[in-house]
Design a protein around this nucleic acid. Structure first.
Length: 274
DNA sequence: CTGGATGCCTGGGAGC
DNA sequence: TGCTCCCAGGCATCCA
C-alpha cells in the first residue's frame, strides 16, 4: 500500500540512476502505459526513450516522476502493488510490465501484479504538473492548518474521507490517515468543521507521522520494497492501523474497527473524541 | 454539485 | 491437501 512515505523512500533509493543515460526501453504490457498528450493512443507513449539522460527524480504525493534531459518525463504511479526495482531486485520477476537498461549496465523495471498503477509519459515536467497533476492538492508533507480548516468547513464528509481526498492534500492513504487522526486525537468519523486548534494539531500530526514513516523506510505490509528490494519497518510503529481489537498504546482501552468511506478504519474511542 | 457505491486486479489467508 | 470465498486498497467512474 504505497503512500507518500513509501514513494519518497523509493525516490531516494533511485538516486543513483540520475545522470545515467537510457540505452534500451521495453514496454512488455501496453495497457499500463499512457501518454499525457494523447491518452487514447497507446502508441503515443514515449516513456524514457533510448539516448535520453536522466536528470531529476520528482515526487508529488504518491506520484513519482523521472525527468530526462530532453524534458520528456516518465510518471510512475504504484497503485496498490506496484514496484520499481533496480538490478538484482528486478531480475526474473513475474508481472514486470516495463524495463529499462541504463548506460552503466544496470536494469530498472516496473512491476505491478494488481495493475492499479501505471506509467504516463509527457513532453515536459511542466506538462506533468499542469495536466496530469492539476487536481492534486499540495504535497501532504507541506499540508497547512488553513487547508484542513477550509476543507472541513467546505463539506459534510467525514474528516477521514477529507484526508483521503488527494485534491485536498496529496499523499495520504488509509494507513497514515488513521495514524495521523490518532496522533491528533480526532475521531475519523467526525463531520463537523475542525476548530483552529484541531486543524493546527492535525496538520502537525500529518507532517510528523509521514516524516517518521520515511525515517523508518516506509511501511511494508505485503508488497512494498524500495528499488533495491529492501523492506521498510514503519509498520512496527503503527499505533492503530491493523490493530482493531487490540489495546490502545496510550490509554489501554480496546481499539475499535469500523468502516469509513468503504475503508477499514481503526481508532481509539477514548483518545479520539467525537 | 456532493458524497456514497462500484469495479478494476491478484495473491494470500481463512474456513471448510 | 485443495477448494472456494473474501479481503486488501488507489482511484476512476457511475449513480442517487
Amino acid at each position: 500500500m504505497p503512500e507518500l512515505p513509501e514513494v519518497e523512500c523509493l525516490r531516494r533509493s533511485l538516486t543513483r540512476i540520475v545522470e545515467r543515460r537510457v540505452v534500451c526501453q521495453e514496454l512488455l504490457r501496453r495497457d499500463v502505459a499512457a501518454s499525457i498528450e494523447d491518452p487514447r493512443t497507446q502508441e503515443a507513449w514515449t516513456g524514457l526513450a533510448p539516448g535520453d539522460r536522466i536528470v531529476a527524480l520528482h515526487r508529488h504525493g504518491k506520484r513519482l516522476a523521472i525527468e530526462g534531459e530532453s524534458g520528456r518525463t516518465l510518471v510512475i504511479h504504484l497503485g496498490m502493488s506496484g514496484q520499481v526495482l533496480l538490478d538484482a531486485a528486478s531480475a526474473q520477476r513475474t508481472h514486470t510490465h516495463a524495463r529499462w537498461t541504463l548506460d552503466d549496465g544496470s536494469t530498472l523495471s516496473f512491476r505491478d501484479p494488481r495493475r492499479f498503477g501505471g506509467l504516463w509519459s509527457g513532453r515536459s515536467m511542466a506538462i506533468v504538473r499542469d495536466v496530469l497533476w492539476k487536481d492534486l492538492g499540495s504535497d501532504a508533507l507541506a499540508v497547512t492548518e488553513l487547508t484542513l480548516l477550509d476543507a472541513s468547513r467546505a463539506s459534510r464528509r467525514s474528516i477521514k474521507s477529507i484526508l483521503l481526498d488527494q485534491r485536498v492534500a496529496a499523499g495520504i492513504g488509509n494507513i497514515y490517515a488513521d495514524e495521523a487522526l490518532f496522533d491528533a486525537g480526532i475521531r475519523p468519523t467526525r463531520r463537523r468543521p475542525l476548530s483552529s486548534a484541531q486543524a493546527h494539531r492535525l496538520a502537525e500530526s500529518i507532517r510528523v507521522t509521514l516524516s517518521a514513516a520515511i525515517e523508518r523506510g516506509g511501511s511494508t505490509l505485503r508488497d512494498y520494497v524500495d528499488a533495491s528490494g529492501s523492506s521498510g519497518s514503519a509498520q512496527h510503529a503503527h499505533r492503530v492501523y491493523g490493530r482493531g481489537g487490540e489495546l490502545c498504546v496510550t490509554c489501554g482501552k480496546t481499539l475499535r474497527q469500523i468502516s469509513v468511506s468503504q475503508r477499514t478504519t481503526v481508532y481509539c474511542p477514548h483518545c479520539q473524541r467525537a
